[in-house]
Amino acid sequence: MERLSLNQITTDNWNMREAVEGCARASIPWIALWRHKVQQAGLAESKRYVRDAGLRVSSLCRGGMFPAATKSERQARIDDNRRAVEEAAELGTDVLVLVCGPAPDRNIDDARKMVEEGIEQLVPYAVSCGVRLGIEPLHPMYAAERSVINTLSQASDIAERYAANQVGVVVDVFHVWWDPDLYRQIARANGRILGFHVSDWIVPTPDLLMGRGMMGDGVIDIRRIRKAVDSAGYTGPIEVEIFNRSIWDAPGDEVLALMKERYTQHV
């Protein structure tokens, strides 16, 4: 269990203090934080809760959302990403997860260029703060509203323009399991994998956003993907990240107990 991390969105009904104390009770050593939760609790208080519980922060989510219709809007997104970098550094994690953003219009090619330009502008500041940028490709069904970076290959194409200790990729099984080129792309990302997220793909999928399942409840061969990620040099924390209303509404301690059980069985 030394690699297990609770991604805070999995227990969305818990506030910052409840999530941190829940991890401590369950002997889960890592927690991945979300910026809106940090803002609700306050940056200093969030840091104190984590420190007092003896936890480590695996990542901060999220930066990104680079494309916008105007130059001023794009600059505002860069400014917000700089704040996200600062928050990650203050919270004690060196990984900022980038959900890169959708097109502001129908031009997906231009949106992808905006993502590339946004990352290029952000890298020097992130380096100065000791924070690495993890590009997370999202499933193609999210291309219109969340991210125009939809394959691990696209993410690596961008990451490889920078040093491995500056920009890498985040592998989330929910987003990449379907890719026929997945295992070759994981091997290609050797030394650049900055995070690994697990959940499951339920059949039939009940909701595009809120339809992720607990590991073992769906069709993803999670262990095979985990072994490939390990072989590509990733030895860091493994985050359980689940968007699912029924899981959110369940008692948090029960969710963590089930999470640990399924982690052992399927990850």
Rank of each mutant, 00 (worst) to 15 (best):
95 V>T: 15
231 S>I: 01
85 V>D: 07
181 D>W: 14
116 E>D: 15
244 N>P: 06
261 E>W: 02
126 A>K: 10
206 P>E: 08
154 Q>M: 10
130 G>E: 12
7 N>G: 10
9 I>N: 03
91 L>M: 06
128 S>D: 15
251 P>Y: 00
183 Y>M: 09
50 V>R: 05
93 T>L: 15
5 S>N: 09
266 H>T: 10
234 Y>Q: 09
102 P>R: 01
130 G>H: 07
56 R>K: 15
50 V>H: 08
164 A>R: 14
217 D>F: 03
83 R>V: 12
126 A>H: 06
230 D>K: 14
201 W>I: 01
62 R>H: 09
49 Y>N: 10
38 V>G: 07
166 Q>D: 15
191 G>K: 11
244 N>T: 03
244 N>L: 03
97 V>S: 04
25 R>E: 04
19 A>D: 06
28 I>E: 10
197 H>V: 04
135 I>Q: 00
98 L>I: 14
166 Q>C: 09
65 M>G: 12
63 G>D: 07
252 G>T: 04
135 I>H: 03
179 D>F: 04
72 S>T: 15
73 E>N: 00
258 L>N: 14
135 I>R: 01
85 V>A: 08
17 R>S: 12
142 Y>R: 11
38 V>W: 01
78 I>H: 06
236 G>A: 05
214 M>H: 01
110 D>C: 10
43 L>R: 11
60 L>W: 02
80 D>M: 13
89 A>L: 03
36 H>D: 13
262 R>D: 05
131 V>A: 08
80 D>K: 13
190 N>V: 12
